[in-house]
Amino acid sequence: MSDTVLVVGAGPTGLSAAAGVASIGKKVVLVEKEDVLGGAPILSGYAKLVPSGEWAKDAIGRMIKRVEDNANVTIHKSTRVVKVDGEAGNFTATLSNGQTVNAGSIILGTGFTHFDSINKPEWGFGTYEDVLTTTQMEQMVGAGKITCPSNGRVPERVAILLCVGSRDRQIGREWCSKICCTVSTNLAMEIKELSPSTEVFIYYMDIRTFGLYEDKFYWKSQEEFKTKFVKARIAEVTRSPDGRLLVKGEDTLVKRPIVIPMDIVVHAIGMDPNEDNPEISKVFGIGLEKHGFVDRGEQYTSSFSSTRRGIYVGGSALGPEDIDTSISHGLAMAMRAVGDMNALVQKAA
């Protein structure tokens, strides 16, 4: 019987799970496929996080340091799990670096993949330089200056298009990515802060700034930062002869077609299932749900179980999720993993 827990993925979910398991005095082996820890917020260079307003590199940086400094945690970067044998209480995982890990339970924090805007060519990403994604815009905010990539001018207007790669049967994505409304209203404020002369327009179908994000982000960006919300799903982004972008659509509240000049168009990209999920499903022997995220086992008395005993899954591997929730999933999985190992030890005794 092993008292080591294997944690796969070092994003907010995996980092929280690893810290949780280690804090109870158990050993952790943390496997991350990239050469840096931190997951999406670090890999994609997010600016200030919602809801804390802290820079991602500071906030997630602390989570990374806490794990790196813990003697109970062994970290393998640029590494994947290629094979899992055995059963709950006694798994043997083979890593891509040739090592094997004997683990009592396995925690998956393998996260999500950003939607690739190239798959919605009508919205101009990849065709026009001034069409960006939220992650690119966050990087621009991080760099401290808002300008059009095409020629460096300060944009008079920025349009943020919500639900890019979410809620769209055309491209087989029937889910809401949950966080992009809040992220976009926050981004609108960050843009306005850095570039007060820029007007920001958010084109929406619904605004889903859930819970306390309602007034902290949606209301604040509208009331204090004068973001304008236009109820339209943009049909097409093109370019006018003067080089500005044109957003075409129907303004559903005035029931009129619109063709409005913009300087930058930002895609509020959604959260896709991790592109590795088919492989993860095979290696770990677990099921995926209909959208391609990792499937859950029984939810109420066996929280965070996957479809295979002894393997737990949480955070954005289960579906679109924010960081706060991912962190609590991580801690809950630590509890599950250690608790179940203890139960097996007691049974054996």
Partner: peptide
């Protein structure tokens, strides 16, 4: 005539 809206007046509000 087309009924497309082609501009917003950002100062009007």
């Amino acid at each position: 005539l087309p009924r497309t809206l082609r501009e917003y007046d950002d100062k009007f509000e």
